[in-house]
């Protein structure tokens, strides 16, 4: 079993929000493996070096978080990576689309940092246990 802190991929095109998510990831006892500013970068990084969790913004240039999530699920090498989607669209349809793409959890923006920390802990709990 790996004893190192779980490694998290953080993808969001907004620098400030990427930094905020990174902070929450570290508060949850994880490390930020890669920061990606668009979907294409995020997918490439996840394929090269599958993380223990991917936190993806839904609305990103390149490929959307939903597309990245679906691509991760379709590839056997990354199919098991838990995915947490963040979206500024808060309607129930958005949640349904996110879950249909295979996401494990969905948080609407604006999210509470404490809430995000809790979800990151929950989704990486299998890694350090």
């Amino acid at each position: 079993m790996p004893t190192a802190a779980p490694r998290v991929l953080v993808a969001d095109d907004e620098d400030d929000i990427r930094a905020l998510v990174g902070l929450a990831v570290r508060r949850a006892g994880c490390t930020v493996a890669t920061e990606a500013a668009d979907g294409t970068q995020a997918l490439a990084a996840a394929r090269t070096d599958p993380p223990d969790l991917a936190v993806l913004d839904v609305s990103m240039p390149g490929a959307s978080g939903l597309e990245v999530c679906a691509a991760l699920r379709a590839d056997p090498a990354t199919a098991g990576v838990p995915v947490l989607l963040l979206s500024a669209g808060a309607s129930t349809d958005d949640v349904a689309r996110g879950l249909a793409a295979g996401a494990d959890a969905y948080l609407a923006k604006p999210f509470s940092v404490a809430g995000l920390v809790a979800r990151v802990r929950e989704l990486t709990s299998g890694v350090t246990a």
Partner: peptide, 14 residues
């Protein structure tokens, strides 16, 4: 939805 919620996410988060 997107352009106003995004800065609010930063404001409220920080």
């Amino acid at each position: 939805s997107h352009e106003l919620r995004t800065p609010l996410t930063s404001i409220l988060g920080y």
